[in-house]
Design a protein around this nucleic acid. Structure first.
Length: 199
DNA sequence: TCGGCGATTCGCT
DNA sequence: GCGAATCGCCGAA
């Protein structure tokens, strides 16, 4: 069952980041479905320096991050290092710019298609074990920014199982040293022991 | 308008 | 383990 709009409109983005572990992220392109189990997420709130929507005088809206100010249930996709697309789930109410970065998935459906999109790989665990890797495997690029997760192009499945807290590990977020003290927030969540978690 | 740099990945050493 | 790749964003001027 597809996650409903109410899930994305929850007001605690850290809680949503935890709840997304174990859910299924899918895309459908030309009728071909690819997807996998979310095994690594990071929460980003406009209130802290790690977020693209952070501003010293309050939330900062720019052309790039505008979609984060929309209501929860949209995608936020942007280009980083001039070559990788990163996929986020926009959460919370309109004008509250929170989002969850999906950092890794465990391949589940359309594996051969994902392999073809990724090109030559020596290690099978490298297929979707990073934020830039999974977008390439799922066929996500900048055109996907702002899509609704309630449609049939990109969506998140609830398999009806709750992930026990003991299987979730919290740690500081990756690659945001510029965020100062906020870089220490334990807002990265992983499924303990999963082989597709990024290194 | 200009210049520095990033929520990363991959290949080579 | 290190550095190149590669470009759009964003703050400063």
């Amino acid at each position: 069952m597809k996650l409903p709009e109410s899930f994305y409109q929850q007001t605690n983005v850290v809680k949503v980041a935890r709840q997304l572990l174990g859910k299924g992220l899918y895309t459908r392109i030309d009728g071909e479905v690819t997807g996998g189990i979310i095994v690594e997420t990071e929460a980003y709130s406009w209130k802290e320096r790690g977020s693209h929507a952070y501003g010293p005088q309050g939330a900062k809206r720019t052309p790039r991050n505008a979609i984060m100010f929309d209501k929860g249930g949209h995608t936020y996709v942007y280009l980083i290092y001039g070559m990788h697309y990163l996929f986020n789930v926009v959460t919370n109410r309109p004008d509250v710019a929170d989002a969850v970065l999906i950092r890794a998935i465990e391949p589940l459906e359309g594996v051969e298609i994902m392999k073809a999109r990724r090109g030559k790989l020596t290690n099978p665990f490298h297929l979707t074990s990073g934020p830039g890797k999974l977008t390439k495997a799922l066929g996500i690029d900048r055109k996907w920014n702002g899509k609704s997760l309630l449609d049939n192009e990109v969506w998140i499945e609830d398999f009806g199982r709750k992930t026990p807290s003991k299987n979730i590990e919290a740690s500081p977020r990756i690659g945001i040293d510029y965020a100062g003290e906020d870089a220490k927030l334990p807002w990265r969540f992983t499924l303990k022991g999963n082989r597709w978690v990024s290194k």
